[in-house]
Design a protein around this nucleic acid. Sequence first.
DNA 1: CCTCCGCATTCCGCTCTCCGGAACGGCTTC
DNA 2: GAAGCCGTTCCGGAGAGCGGAATGCGGAGG
Lengths: 323, 323
Amino acid sequence: MWPYMSLGNHALRCREPERAPIHPLGEQDRMPRAITHQGKASYHPTPFPPPPASPPPSTGSLERATAILTYLSAAAGPVGLAELSRRTGLPKTTAHRLLGVLCATGLAQRIDSDYTIGQKLINLAGPGPRMVPGTRRMVLPHLIRLYEATRQTVNLAVPRGMEIAYVERVYGHGRVSTPSDEVDRAPLHCTAGGKVLLAFNHELHAAFRDRGDLPRMTRRTLIGHAALDRELHVVRRRGVAYAKEEFAEGIVCAAAPVFGPDGRVVMAISVAGASPRAVSAEVADLVRRTAHAISSALDRPFPVLAVQATGRTRAEGPPMSFL
Amino acid sequence: MWPYMSLGNHALRCREPERAPIHPLGEQDRMPRAITHQGKASYHPTPFPPPPASPPPSTGSLERATAILTYLSAAAGPVGLAELSRRTGLPKTTAHRLLGVLCATGLAQRIDSDYTIGQKLINLAGPGPRMVPGTRRMVLPHLIRLYEATRQTVNLAVPRGMEIAYVERVYGHGRVSTPSDEVDRAPLHCTAGGKVLLAFNHELHAAFRDRGDLPRMTRRTLIGHAALDRELHVVRRRGVAYAKEEFAEGIVCAAAPVFGPDGRVVMAISVAGASPRAVSAEVADLVRRTAHAISSALDRPFPVLAVQATGRTRAEGPPMSFL
DNA sequence: CCTCCGCATTCCGCTCTCCGGAACGGCTTC
DNA sequence: GAAGCCGTTCCGGAGAGCGGAATGCGGAGG
């Protein structure tokens, strides 16, 4: 099927057969946890015996980089160069060089002399909880509580280029399913969360204005910058934004801004429902109060920072200033 | 404030300044959505004007591959070779060749003549909702309901090599925080979810037995295969597994299996609490019933599969057979 | 205090992995 | 039928990638 499968065999002709073997890439996914330094996490790596001897390493730099990333991803914490070299079977200099490129591209990241996967890699995989500013642990209970109070879909959105990305979504059995639920990204100008981010992030708003006309999603979409600006002015005053069938027919949203410790808006929390009743003033107030509660929580120093610096706990999202 | 901020600057030290300039990869993250074929999603790409002319592409294959993946990640659906070539500035043959390697490593995936990101890339980013078998939309309401019924942390775990990975975790304000909450992976033998997977997945169990002694996590950990086998026998009969301070001090869990449409166990749902009271027989029954409800839901044909085949909707997890 | 070992880092000559133009066949549109 | 665009394959060439050697640092042990 694939022409490169035959070429792959060609590429596997070993340049230096006396080289130390590495694991086949598929096996990397299944390798036991690396024996690495642990932070405060209570779980230690499983000291199972190493896998049996493996075939010679691929000579392609993409495959090699993937092997490195696979190991980093499977490790319980940051990994040093020497261990990485031994485990992947790559010469130390080669591993060092590849890691240099991986770090430059953001796919890997240095922590002291060690390496771990980088935020770029997480971003490539698409929006998700790892992109929640602050920590999911801090944010999720608020989202759940808001869901319980409203029984509507609760969304958490962050700016993503000239759009928003939904990094958390909480809903229950009573949820009304609509096509817009399938998306993990949406325009700024016709979603409540997007309006919030535009209203309170002036750089984003300025950049967005330079982008020309606003695409119409429904007949209710605000497609003029002047109209949008008026709306954003109201949003700033009110502290809540609405989107009433501007993005998708049948969907009404209310959103409020969450501010980071530096006072800048970092995300928008919103409630989406299938009728105007679902986003009453009462609901909007709940949204605003939830946003405020999260903002307050983000404003406080929290002890997981120490864990973050010494070990990789996957529940944590990107630094606030990343966005 | 954030340790990442200072370390990030350190990691940005450039290795070869004389190299041909590449797209700043940060800018790739911010490129507008590609104008591509849409599936059933109601959101169409934002028809903003293309970004200004870019500098020539980097000549490093890692950087080039990253540029390709970045574009694929930002696209609303699968992308063809010609568009990818035009958009990244790479010669068509080069792009084709790189995509061949990317697909071989699983970082990208073909859909007909088009390409999209691959599951391997998602896996590299670490456990998360995209690894939920079936769809998150199908599973999450059940998790939320179980949380509401128990007010304890609800976990959803899938097998991951010789471990489990937590792909969903739902908790509220009343949650008691413990060190084990920080992990996204855990051993099979001393977690309730892991026992469930071992009990009902015979291949996994057989492979696990070949791995030698079981590492002790606490003084209550079962560290003999014979003792574990007896426990698993009880789990099969009972349909529920417990872990009582076997993984982490102070944590008690009850878990039940979720079966896919082919009758094989695909994940384990569990409730974790800080006392035996938190996982009473009543709670265990709730867990079992929730697992059964999810199994039933997964057993039904669901229309999102059609979307999966024609467009990339990020809410969907891997195919059931992937695990 | 000294020695040894293991670590990460840098340098640079060499080579082979990667590059990409050319060619080709298929499909769609006019 | 012709033109254009698509994805795919081939293969000679060169530059991106390779990795041994050298270096300096820190920690452990005698």
